[in-house]
Amino acid sequence: MNPPVSIVIVTYRDALQKAAEKKGQSVESQERAAVIRLSPGDLKALGVEEYGRVKLRSDVGIVVVEARLDRSSKPGFGYMPVSRYTSELISYDPTKAKLPNFKRIEVQVEPSDEDITIWAT
């Protein structure tokens, strides 16, 4: 397996994911939420194909999600919709910043054979 790659995650809003969550469509909501969009270079460095699984590890949490190709993404940055997945990775430490790091989550990304993270409801 390829070594981990350092990525800064920037969260964004996904209207369809939020709509599915509101309507109680848990599978659709989860499928839209459990993704990270990465640059072609970072996917290659990870040795992961699009739709392959990756483990994201921040200072405060770990999740397994699906990797997606984002040709407009700069290397070193990844994009995820705001959801239960990102809240597992986001940290809040007022000695470092006033606000939680929604737009700057530092993670180590590595290829994974594990299932996509799902929480008991």
Partner: peptide, 8 residues
């Protein structure tokens, strides 16, 4: 519980 840091 949906969107804020879970470690908090």
């Amino acid at each position: 519980f949906s969107s804020l840091p879970h470690h908090v």
